[in-house]
């Protein structure tokens, strides 16, 4: 059973978002890392790039599969997590401890469109 944390927001594409004021941290869920298997490569955008909600901001690759990273909400990248990029196994070890990008949120209203823990648990149940 994949881990789901109560305090986070989730997308249907298996990204999580932790919100702290107007700053957000984005990562992939435990369910996603489990499905990918051993992650071989993560490509993240440089600070300053702006993405709308739902836009592709990066990619996660394992040996046999690859998955685009989609922006949960609109925002500008403030920082990327170099350590996750360099050591992708950290995401496999604890997907919620290894955020991928830190963003500045533009519209707090967009949070309403994201899933909360119970809905996300339901989504990944089978």
């Amino acid at each position: 059973m994949a881990k789901v944390l109560d305090e986070l927001y989730y997308t249907e594409d298996h990204e999580w978002l932790r919100v702290d004021g107007n700053v957000g941290f984005v990562g992939i869920t435990d369910f996603a890392q489990g499905h990918l298997g051993d992650i071989a490569y993560i490509e993240l955008p440089d600070a300053g790039s702006r993405f709308a909600a739902g836009e592709v901001f990066g990619v996660v690759e394992s040996i046999k599969t690859a998955s685009d990273l989609l922006m949960p909400v609109s925002g500008t990248v403030a920082e990327k997590n170099d350590s996750a990029e360099q050591s992708p196994e950290k995401v496999n070890a604890d997907a919620y401890d290894s955020w991928l990008i830190k963003i500045e949120l533009e519209d707090m209203g967009e949070l309403d469109k994201l899933l909360r823990a119970d809905a996300y648990t339901e989504l990944t149940k089978e």
Binding site: Y41, E61, S62, K64, T65, A66, D68
Partner: peptide, 12 residues
């Protein structure tokens, strides 16, 4: 680096 290729990424 097969994650670049058509048999995995298809249209991407």
């Amino acid at each position: 680096l097969q994650a670049r290729e058509q048999h995995i990424r298809r249209e991407k």
